[in-house]
Structure formats: C-alpha cells, structure tokens
C-alpha cells in the first residue's frame, strides 16, 4: 500500500477542508437567493425529475385507490350523513358572505387577510437523505412563485417556499428542523383568538409545536389552529391542525401546545402554492419609500 499521508496529500486534504468550511459558511449565510448556475442546474434536472415523477405518482395513486376501495361503503354512509348538514351550512355561508360583502362595502374595506389565490404544482423530488425536509415543485419564478409563499395541500398547510429558480422551486416543510422555520399561527378558541408561533416538530409524537402562547390564554384540546396572517406573508385562515395537548414552557412564562397537523407530510403528490391577496409588509414599505 502506498504511503497515505505524503506531504502533498496532506496539503490537499487541509486545503479541501478549508474549502469545505468556506463553502458551508457561504451557503448557510443569509444570502438565499440562488445564483444562476444553481438555478440552471435545478431547472434542467427538475425537468428530468418531473418526467420521472409523474408516472411514479400515477402508480402510487393506483395503489392508494385500491386501498381506499376497501372501506368505500362505510365512508359513503358517513358522507351522506354529512351531506344533510351541508345544505344548511351552505345557505348559511352564502347569507353570511353576502352580509360581509355589504358591510365591507359600507366601510370601504377593499382587501382582507383572507384573500388569496392558489397555484397547483407537482412535487418533483424530495431530498433522499432526510436531514432536511425539502421538496421540489415544478413551478418557479416564471409562474409567479416567490420566496416565503405558503404551500398547502387540500388538507392543510405543509410548508413555505424556501427558494425559487426560474422553473422550479424548493419548499421547506413544517417538519424541518431549521431554526428560522417559524410561522405565525392562532388557535381558534371559544370566543377569542389566541396567537402563537409554529416552531419545530416533535418526532416522537409527530406533532408540531405551537410556542409563545400567552400564559393565561384558555386553550382546549381539539380546537383548530390556523395561520394568523400577521407574519405579513401568509394569508389568514389556512388550516394547520388541531390542539393535542397544552403545557407550560420551561420557564413558566408562556404556554406550549402540541398540534396534530391535519396534512400528511409523507405522501405529497400535488401541492397548492398560496399567493396572498393583501399587500405584504415589504410592498407597503417599498411604496412608502417611494412616496417620500
């Protein structure tokens, strides 16, 4: 065997370690809009990935359909029972919506935090080592996707857009361990709204953590948690999940709640990217700046 640590090799090893540290430092800093070579690579590979993933999703969907067929009868009965209620609720919603529109008109309110438009996207990849929880979708800057937009499935919120390139973008799921992965949320309590932040994911219970809830807030198990829209980027009212349990935090100043997410993070085929209707904070600030 040749001598491993000859002088030349040692120097190469040291230089490469220094390069490693520099590269990691560069990419962990808050630059996070992609450079154009990265965008180019992601887009061209993304195109190949989407051609691979479409048939895969189709086959997986076939299996799931077979699985669903087994309890079709039971499900149908329950749904029929729900349908009777639905007609009544639909009428009620219509009346309320009309009333709301009239009142808004009377008060000259044009936009609310609820306004949003949806953009469907196909999931094209997921990082194979699950050190980060990122998925790629096949809609990018050219389709109007921007960084930090909310991403939902039909069942609820799953994450936010982490970075965009021209034709693809990367979504950071709520289960990612990044410290900056934080979403302003609120609990729909009896007659008030209780605010907090979705921060972190508990792997043992599979629950999201809702932190920084006021200590005297009254929260009960089973109440729904939705986005608050106060973060300035997400619209209000995207479903996140249900409260599983509540406890005081380690200092006793605030409360933490465990939230059972309503969306599944495991079988993501199609997602919806949410564009907020109300102006975001940055846009307002920019306009103010121009006005001065």
């Amino acid at each position: 065997m040749p001598q491993f640590f000859s002088n030349k090799r040692l120097i190469v090893l040291l230089v490469s370690i220094i390069l490693l540290v520099a590269l990691i430092g560069y990419s962990m800093s808050d630059r996070r809009s992609l450079t154009w070579p990265e965008q180019f690579m992601k887009d061209s590979v993304g195109w190949v990935q989407s051609t691979f993933n479409k048939p895969a999703h189709y086959v997986a969907g076939l299996f799931e359909n077979l699985d669903e067929m087994r309890n079709l009868y039971e499900e149908n009965r329950i749904l029929k029972a729900h349908l009777d209620d639905y007609a009544q609720i639909a009428v009620e919603v219509n009346v309320l919506r009309r009333q709301n529109d009239q009142l808004k008109e009377a008060l000259d309110i044009e936009e609310s935090l609820f306004d949003h438009e949806l953009k469907p996207a196909l999931v094209i990849h997921r990082s194979p080592d699950r050190w980060n929880e990122f998925i790629g979708v096949n809609k990018g800057e050219q389709h109007g996707v921007e960084v930090d937009m909310a991403v939902i499935t039909s069942k609820g919120l799953v994450g936010k857009v982490n970075n965009v390139s021209q034709f693809t973008s990367t979504v950071q799921l709520l289960t990612d361990h990044d410290r900056t992965n934080r979403i302003s949320a609120m609990v729909d309590a009896e007659d008030t709204e209780v605010y907090g932040f979705i921060e972190g994911y508990d792997e043992q219970t599979g629950a999201l953590m809702l932190r920084k809830i006021e200590a005297d807030a009254k929260i009960e198990v089973g109440q729904t948690v939705i986005t608050s829209g106060l973060g300035g980027i997400f619209p209000k009212g995207l479903l996140i999940g249900e409260v599983m349990s509540v406890e005081a935090d380690e200092y006793g100043l605030t409360k933490n709640a465990y939230i059972e997410p309503s969306a599944s993070f495991h079988n993501l085929d199609y997602v919806l990217i949410v564009k907020r209707g109300a102006p975001t904070i940055e846009a307002i600030m920019l306009n103010d700046g121009e006005g001065d």
Binding site: L23, D129, N132
Partner: peptide, 13 residues
C-alpha cells in the same frame, strides 16, 4: 448539494 441539500460542500467533500 445543489439539488437536494442546499448547503454546498457537504456532499462534494
């Protein structure tokens, strides 16, 4: 690194 990890250098090294 570019497509999945988003931290350059880890896998290259």
């Amino acid at each position: 690194d570019v497509i999945y990890t988003h931290v350059l250098g880890i896998y290259i090294f």
